[in-house]
Amino acid sequence: MNDLEFGTRNKKGDWAPSQHLELPPFWSWPPSLGRVLGWVMGYVWPWNLVAIVTALLWWQLVVPDAGTLRTLGWGWALQLFAANWLGLFAYYGFFEWRYYRRRVQQRQFKYNGRFPAEQPSDVFWFRSQNIDNFLRSFLVSVPIGTAIEVLLLWAFANGWAPAVSWSDHSVYLVCLVLLAPVLHEVHFFVIHRLIHWGPLYRWVHSVHHNSVNPSPWSSMSMHPVEGAAYFGVALWTLLIPSHPFLAVFLFHAAAFGAIVGHLGFDQLALPGGGAQKSSAYAHYLHHKFFEVNYCDNGSVPLDRWFGSWHDGSPEGERLMQERFSKKKERLNAA
């Protein structure tokens, strides 16, 4: 692959795509049926499909029956935690090993020209971004997310969450599962804007933003408060009539889906040949500039509506700098 056919590389070795980010086509008028169908395919394949398939596997093979779930016990809770930990380790580990250890495509399509291992820093545990991010992800965030998942399954089993059955409401539940990633986007945008507020940023979110050059291990590297808020998306099942499977799926959408914005590459060379678009650029720009793209490039254009959208173009850069200048003027005036 020659990445210079698809973008440019600056003197520091950072690569940027020539094609700018676009909002989903159904927000444009008149909508194009072909583009809408293409977007729907991209919505499902591959990242959301991974969450759907893994959630189904966990539901069939790991989550115990309702009778067991009615009693809050260490046995089934640790079983679920072990499955989550090992599954996520294998999934994230594959991307880390292939693209950051073996470096099968070197720096082709890599947004930041350097690898985290080349940038030791005192902001990380053991001065290593890789070690720091791994420990925070798998010893902090995954246990917190699993604890929320366990409590929700227990609540459903005891009738403390509004539940409907698949036999009576199958169409409704299928639609709910398909729309769950949209719920995750909106939830993420709200908590993300909140933890960018000064004190919360310094005490909580700065932990994640230490990784200016994100990699797969960065995906769930969070302060415990942020981890609880992030996986708290599954708590919406306490308000929305649904099914315990939705709680499992929302955990998987958050856990397995977090990697998308932290892959660090625009395209990924596949083992059998060819390449897969990563959809990571919008969130990379957030890590680079901090105050843009709080919701990445999702199905709901919340960043466009709230004035924090950056599409990677010179115009997006100009608008961002204007916002920063106005913010600086307000702070100076205060």
Rank of each mutant, 00 (worst) to 15 (best):
G7Y: 00
H20Y: 12
E22Q: 10
P31D: 02
G42N: 12
V50W: 11
I52K: 04
V62Q: 10
G73W: 05
L80E: 02
A83L: 14
E96N: 06
R98Y: 06
Q105I: 15
Q108C: 04
S121P: 02
D122H: 08
F126A: 12
R127D: 13
L135N: 05
S137D: 11
V142P: 00
P143E: 11
G145H: 01
L151K: 05
A155G: 08
W160E: 07
V164N: 09
S165N: 08
H169D: 09
L176M: 07
L179C: 14
L183D: 01
H184S: 06
E185K: 01
H187R: 03
H187F: 01
F188Q: 00
F189I: 05
H192F: 02
R193K: 10
H196L: 14
L200E: 02
Y201G: 08
G232A: 05
L238Q: 11
I240T: 14
P241W: 10
P241M: 13
F249L: 15
F251E: 01
G261Q: 02
D266L: 00
L268E: 03
A275K: 01
A275F: 08
K277R: 14
Y281I: 00
H283L: 04
L285Q: 06
E291C: 08
C295K: 03
R304K: 14
K327W: 11
R330Q: 10
A333E: 15
